[in-house]
Write a protein that binds this DNA or RNA. Structure first.
Lengths: 131, 131
DNA sequence: TATAAGTATGGAGTACAGTCCATGGTCAAG
DNA sequence: CTTGACCATGGACTGTACTCCATACTTATA
């Protein structure tokens, strides 16, 4: 799969993909085609990798952090224990974020209830929620 | 409360607060003190507002979007129905994000289980999760 | 074999979210 | 009434994550 097809598959602009490659986030193979500037060929795992990057971004990781995480992941690829460790730490961060999100939801729902109750004393305060 | 005290209360750098003010995200009052450049005074609701901004940021909103949301909120402030509507739409967006997060967690947990099971056929694929 | 479409590389430019700094005014304590 | 802490404003600067060329080469199609 060449870059434009990959771009469609990953739903990302070609330029963004090239940018990720320069950052080391994607490492496509090189084709024999393309002469002195050989074409880059992408595997279907690269599509998964690209989706993973976008997901991690929405979770608040910077590209630098994502790179670290992914390198760490690759480094322990042949040790199931290490792989599980890396995954667990990602799960932990995700759960933290989820907890914050739940707190925020509680706050907003509490506020709706408070308004529906005719705004009695003691409006819900965000400070009372650990998020 | 003046800006440095507010900065401590909101746990933000003074410069960031000034930046938010120029963006219209915070609207402190003006003191009579300070001569030709009157001091800005902050209420305790501003602390809540600042926390809300940071929360919205972690949820992936840009400052521009946060500004829109908050203006929309203020616009309907005197109509309980409208306020509830705005809150409901925020809740809906938050729930979407939470759903994506849950999908991601399922994926990662599935991967851990798969590894612990000795990596049988059919590795979990991120593409199979709507996140 | 011309020509359009696709590709690689390098570098400039942009948007966003701050962060830093110089200047100058103000206030409160001693 | 001086001095040190605090405040406002404007502008320059930074890092991140793209985004947009210009140039040049390669490939596939008619």
């Amino acid at each position: 799969m060449l870059i434009s097809e990959f771009a469609r598959a990953a739903d990302l602009p070609v330029d963004t993909i090239r940018f990720y490659i320069t950052k080391g986030l994607l490492k496509p193979e090189r084709s024999t085609k393309g002469g002195s500037n050989p074409y880059q060929v992408f595997r279907k795992e690269d599509v998964t990798a690209a989706r993973m990057i976008r997901l991690q971004q929405t979770l608040g990781y910077s590209l630098g952090e994502i790179l670290e995480l992914n390198e760490e992941y690759r480094a322990g690829e042949h040790s199931p224990e290490r792989t599980v460790e890396v995954l667990q730490s990602q799960i932990a961060r995700l759960e933290e974020r989820k907890a914050a999100l739940d707190q925020a939801l509680s706050f907003l729902r509490g506020k709706v209830d408070w308004i529906k109750a005719g705004k009695p004393e003691g409006a819900p305060r965000l400070e009372d929620y650990q998020c």
